[in-house]
Amino acid sequence: MLTVDFARLPVGPGDRVLDLGAGGGRHAFEVLRRGADVVAFDLDPAEMESVAAMFAAMDKEGEVPYGATGETVVGTALDMPFPDGSFDRVIASEVLEHIPEDMAAMKEIVRVLKPGGLLAVTVPAFLPERVCWALSEAYHTAPGGHIRIYTLAELSAKLKSSGLEIGDHHHAHGLHTPYWWIKCAVGVDNNDHPIAKAYHELLVWDIMKRPAVTRIAEQILNPVIGKSVVLYARKPA
């Protein structure tokens, strides 16, 4: 399930891409399939072990275009072990809302991005996230959880003050928002609740089958209750 629109963040052979806060690697895998060199970077060593194993499996199955490379690096977004201007593209998906010093992380992103390079940032959208916080304290107080709710204006202003030119934006995963509202209402750890379980099965079916009816529904829901907002920016040349 991708949040970033790669039509707006084009990647391909010859590009070096950083997936910051890569987690399970969903965006890193797509970047590699498109023939770019990708570095999956995360604070969690176990996640990076899993991503490295998937990179190897993709290569074995012939899913990696000739010359493309995928590597993993463990570290903190506040002090990344890369020289200035190392990457043509940076993806920071669902990570900034976890970082207390978010402006410091943004400045690190700008530092490692090449002049003229592109950035895609995704964070939980304001309205869906605000409802989740109101429904469940456990949703946002768990260790490593979300510590802030961004408005689009705040996110844009912080990225701009970090030295980036702000581009367009869109919302994603409108179908997922009701699931999280249900989870927050019945208990975020209550995976066996019948309503939550049924909705989860619907989401899995949608991800696997991509039927027209849910694709149309999500297009309608995204501008209203899209779970994530995606903002694109550019480092001045």
Rank of each mutant, 00 (worst) to 15 (best):
R148M: 07
L96Q: 04
H193Q: 09
P143I: 15
D42M: 11
G14N: 10
L127C: 00
E165P: 00
S228L: 10
D5E: 09
G85Y: 14
P100Y: 04
A40C: 03
V95T: 11
L127H: 03
G24P: 11
M208D: 15
D79C: 05
V213N: 08
G167P: 12
D37V: 00
V230T: 14
L231Q: 14
V204Q: 08
Y139Q: 10
N191S: 12
E137S: 13
A237C: 11
S93M: 01
L18H: 10
A212F: 08
P128A: 02
H200W: 09
M54P: 02
R210S: 13
N191M: 13
G174C: 13
V4M: 06
F126H: 00
E101Q: 15
G163W: 12
M103Y: 11
V123M: 06
A217M: 15
S162V: 03
A53E: 15
A157T: 05
I195C: 07
I147E: 04
T122W: 02
A57Y: 00
K114G: 01
D42V: 11
A28Y: 00
H171T: 04
S93N: 12
V64S: 00
L202E: 10
L231N: 03
E218K: 01
V110Y: 01
G25L: 04
M208Y: 04
G70V: 00
T141Y: 03
V123G: 01
F55Q: 01
P45L: 02
K209W: 05
E154T: 13
E218S: 10
M80C: 11
L155M: 12
A53V: 00
A53P: 01
W180P: 04
F55V: 01
S136F: 07
N222K: 03
E94Y: 03
I207E: 15
L221Q: 09
A185G: 00
A172K: 07
L18F: 04
T3E: 15
R26P: 01
E218D: 10
A92C: 15
A92S: 15
A53L: 10
G75W: 05
D88I: 14
I220P: 00
G226W: 11
M1L: 03
E154M: 12
E63A: 05
V121E: 00
P223I: 10
D168S: 12
H171F: 15
P13R: 12
S136H: 02
G85K: 14
V204R: 11
D42H: 12
R26T: 14
K209D: 08
H170I: 04
M54N: 12
A134C: 03
E61T: 02
A40N: 03
G116D: 00
W205R: 15
G23I: 06
A56E: 01
F29Q: 06
D5F: 07
L203H: 06
A233V: 06
H169S: 14
V51F: 10
